[in-house]
Design a protein around this nucleic acid. Structure first.
Length: 110
DNA sequence: CCAATGACTACAA
DNA sequence: GTTGTAGCCATTG
């Protein structure tokens, strides 16, 4: 895969749209890219996105607001630290007041 | 092509 | 509230 698959590109596009101090879920992103059933693929894409500074993968969590993918980051608590650094409260790998920091991306029509 | 994997989600017990 | 099962589908071996 010399080029990033279109699917990954979609995920990256949405992830890059996440504003500062906000977070979103995999399923929500999946819907934004017209692949609501591919929530797992979103996380899979984030795996490669973690290497891209263009893609704030730390702002993407599961539907419960839990930092399920923190283990994929360099540090054990790097993801949590990044979120807290943006004003997001995190307790025991779970985002506090998740509903307030939750952000819904816009659907991509490309 | 088939089997296994996974940063998910939903439902049942 | 917790645990288990199933569906989902792109990537990889």
């Amino acid at each position: 895969m010399t080029n990033s698959s279109n699917f990954f590109e979609r995920v990256y596009e949405v992830a890059k749209q996440i504003p500062y101090g906000r977070v979103t879920t995999y399923g929500t992103i999946a819907k934004a890219i017209c692949a609501a059933k591919s929530a797992r693929m979103v996380g899979y894409a984030m795996n490669g996105a973690s290497e891209r500074e263009d893609v704030p993968a730390h702002r993407v969590v599961n539907r419960k607001g839990v930092l399920t993918g923190k283990h994929h980051f360099a540090g054990t608590h790097l993801m949590q630290q990044l979120l807290e650094s943006e004003g997001i409260k995190v307790k025991d790998d779970q985002i506090q007041d998740f509903n307030s920091v939750f952000w819904e991306p816009e659907t991509i029509s490309t």
